[in-house]
Design a protein around this nucleic acid. Sequence first.
DNA 1: CATGAATGAGTCTTCATTCAT
DNA 2: GATGAATGAAGACTCATTCAT
Lengths: 205, 205, 205, 205
Amino acid sequence: MSAIPVEPARRQRKSAEQRTRDILAAATLVFARNGFRGADMQHVADHAGVGKGTVYRFYPTKEELFRAVVDDAMQRLTAQIETAVNGIDDPFEYLRISFRAYMAFFQANPDTIELFVHERSEWGTECKPSYFVYKDSHSDEWLAMCERMVASGLCRITDPILIQDLVGNLAYGTMLVNRISGRNAPLLEQADALLDGLFRGILRT
Amino acid sequence: MSAIPVEPARRQRKSAEQRTRDILAAATLVFARNGFRGADMQHVADHAGVGKGTVYRFYPTKEELFRAVVDDAMQRLTAQIETAVNGIDDPFEYLRISFRAYMAFFQANPDTIELFVHERSEWGTECKPSYFVYKDSHSDEWLAMCERMVASGLCRITDPILIQDLVGNLAYGTMLVNRISGRNAPLLEQADALLDGLFRGILRT
Amino acid sequence: MSAIPVEPARRQRKSAEQRTRDILAAATLVFARNGFRGADMQHVADHAGVGKGTVYRFYPTKEELFRAVVDDAMQRLTAQIETAVNGIDDPFEYLRISFRAYMAFFQANPDTIELFVHERSEWGTECKPSYFVYKDSHSDEWLAMCERMVASGLCRITDPILIQDLVGNLAYGTMLVNRISGRNAPLLEQADALLDGLFRGILRT
Amino acid sequence: MSAIPVEPARRQRKSAEQRTRDILAAATLVFARNGFRGADMQHVADHAGVGKGTVYRFYPTKEELFRAVVDDAMQRLTAQIETAVNGIDDPFEYLRISFRAYMAFFQANPDTIELFVHERSEWGTECKPSYFVYKDSHSDEWLAMCERMVASGLCRITDPILIQDLVGNLAYGTMLVNRISGRNAPLLEQADALLDGLFRGILRT
DNA sequence: CATGAATGAGTCTTCATTCAT
DNA sequence: GATGAATGAAGACTCATTCAT
């Protein structure tokens, strides 16, 4: 019944890229689960399989680590959507595919949603959450797409901003409701139905 | 030659209800601003104009105080919506009025939105946030309303659940986007336009 | 052989003055022994017989506590010298008594010397050590005393500043050498001999 | 199409003596500025232009490095004084020249003073500071010099130990006061005046 | 040998909660 | 009951030292 001395996990030397990936992945997990305040840097280090000092060598404060985690998530979201819509010209098709890619991303990366919530919770109105920073930075191209939809003459709604808001708010609301309400509905099918519902309207004309 | 004793903020004699209200109001403010973890019980006591011990007599832990704050907000939201729709029979009208009352509440009580975010941030998937507990508890009556809309024969969409989701997600998304993105648009007018857009659809038939 | 549960030292409530005294005394001890960096706030709390939080309630940072400790020592030094010279008019007598009181203080409070060393060690040239701040603030009255000595016509040295420097540097050097070199000579007797030596000169005329 | 490899600060090939000198010089600077605790071994390595591991090959611990730095300074002080008094026989002249060399050294090497302060601050009464170790080791020859002064019959003071103390304490005090009080007076001229003052006494006989 | 990436023990500070008055 | 002084557990961050390359 004597304690087995834990072999102190011989010191590893890995590439900076690998370390970055390990730490970012660990931090994403820990921050998503526990929030910014609730996360313990020691847990991040443990999950990443490194010492605490190593985490601090890459990200000098907890806050910078958190920001890096959120940025990383935003970049993956952006990349996934851009890959999906690559080469699509028709604005309606563009919108539908984006909407699906958006939902698919959050379906596959629910941690990201948690991060957004934590970010907002921690910094409140002091700084605009990354999600909205990104959204605003892409606002022009989205609006252009909406304008092309209106110009096609196929829309009953002629205010492109209203279209943008409808789609944007519905997407955001759907993504959150699905995650937070705990209903693990198949987001993709739902996405199509919701977007379709939005486009064709609830009321018979 | 006796010194005039400084009046030591004479121990207040207030009713328990008044104390409860004071503490709840103070806590709402402090929790909304700083989140659950970030809130300092001392600040709550200071804002409420009572000693810290008194706060603990009414709410034995920080967590219970937070829950009470959120419950209180949910009750006010519920009451406001119920008052608004009182006596309305037509389901379309009912929906429109609810939607407006919902937006009006959050417009007037943005702190409530912050509380919802903080609640989710702190407890994650461990417990369903109050907003969704309430929503689920009212799901039946909302669904019934959607069914009546479908039954009216006026809807293109015949799945009442889809209607419920569309409206619910759009409402939730709009409420959050308006608050978080920092656009302080007149929520009420926007509410009408959005709901109208949803009902009549984006596309010309 | 079962462990005796340590009675957790029932919570005390003392006057703020008493607490201040306890904490200051404990901090003087711990800082003198271990220096600023080397001192552990937990030790200070332990020595003062209070919780760590209590120390922080009185002195919000380690640095402020250290400054308070040094200030306290300077005030005691100042008070002791002023008491000793109270009512003395003759400048030579004034000087001799001050010199003795100065030595007596450091003899009785060697911790103070350590504090001075630590203060200088920690803050280097960033801020003038308290000892010299005090010294400068009293420079005028000391100089006046030296001028009166010169004016008496009894001095070979006619530059009052030189007299001031001689006495000041000798006092400072003697105080430190006695402490640091570890010679625990009877400082008082030595003080008289040294001052006498300085006044009457080493060389026969 | 091959990239030009960045020359990675080619591993230096220097003699051990050169490395020692570099490291010692760097450490003197860093320790003087920041104290023992405050000094960062990384900074020492950076200033010396070597890797941290190399510093540790020459001096296996921070403490040993510090001791080496102080020893080095003491040796330079000793050497400078000995060079200055070389060949001087007259004890009064010997004393005057030593006093000047002493002051000149600290004038030119104020870092040394800081090191003494830091050494005392860090080790307190645990070990006698190098300055006093040196002083004690030379005590005999200094005392002999004082005895020769007494024997010359020119001194009013007949206790050679008292003379030794007077000069020693005044020298030490003057050196420190000049450095610490921040007065950057020309130490050399002051040295002459002070020593002269000490020898001829303040009082007219 | 030289390097610097990796480690983790050590400390200041905060704040929820308790309890003497 | 009401108060706020007292407590101590918890956690971010630093840096001397080690050791894989």
